[in-house]
Simulated assay, not measured.
Amino acid sequence: MQWTETVVVQAPLERVRRAVADEHEVMRWSAWPQATGCTCAVDGDGTSPGSEIVFTDPRGREQGRQRLQGVTEAGAGHGEEVVVAYRLSNRGPGGRTMHPEVDFRLGATGPTTTQVALDFRATPPLPPPLRQLAERVMAPRVRALHVKDLEQLKAHAETAAVEEER
């Protein structure tokens, strides 16, 4: 499975960067905890590579981790781009471990606007015929949650930007 979803956020790039690259902030806007019924906790400082969001089911069993792989920055001014890379390890089809990759590409489109592209890649750990079936079943739900994530990121970052201006 692979796709890219985008949104334009009415907030400066640095504000959006903080919302995406600080795992404590991610937990304020992410759609995943509610959708999965998991509780989440940050293991580490939440901003350094290697920090992880740990997903735990209602019985207290760990279901997955979302590790901050790194943050890369290039350019300056309106052409600046930031990539925040997350690598996941979570239970997939049949209880097998999956390793999805999620990258947030942030680009300043003006002094107070940022385009966010969410790039997603994952391969269910199944033989080809079953993998294709699993992807057909999983992809619509996962992609819809990514769209919801971007909507909630937009609302979170725009609200925070207004509060910071005060």
Rank of each mutant, 00 (worst) to 15 (best):
Q2D: 14
T4G: 00
Q10L: 08
L13Y: 09
V16I: 12
R17M: 04
V20D: 08
A21R: 06
V26I: 14
M27G: 10
M27E: 12
W32Q: 07
Q34K: 13
A35C: 03
T39Q: 09
C40I: 06
C40M: 10
V42R: 01
V42T: 04
D43R: 15
G44V: 10
D45Q: 08
D45K: 09
S48C: 03
P49Y: 09
P49R: 10
P49T: 12
E52M: 12
T56C: 01
D57S: 10
G60P: 11
Q63R: 13
Q63C: 11
Q63F: 02
G64C: 02
Q66V: 13
G70H: 07
E73M: 11
G79T: 10
E80Y: 00
E81R: 15
V84F: 02
A85C: 07
Y86N: 11
L88H: 06
S89V: 12
G92Y: 03
P93W: 09
P93K: 05
T97H: 00
V102S: 05
D103A: 02
F104T: 07
F104R: 02
R105M: 00
G107W: 00
G110S: 15
P111M: 06
P111G: 15
T114K: 09
V116H: 05
L118N: 06
R121K: 08
R121Q: 08
P124R: 09
P125V: 10
L126Y: 03
P127E: 13
P128C: 05
P129W: 04
P129C: 07
L130P: 01
Q132F: 05
A134V: 08
E135I: 15
M138D: 04
P140L: 05
R141M: 11
V142N: 06
R143F: 07
D149Y: 01
L150D: 03
L153D: 12
K154M: 06
A155S: 11
A155P: 04
E158Q: 13
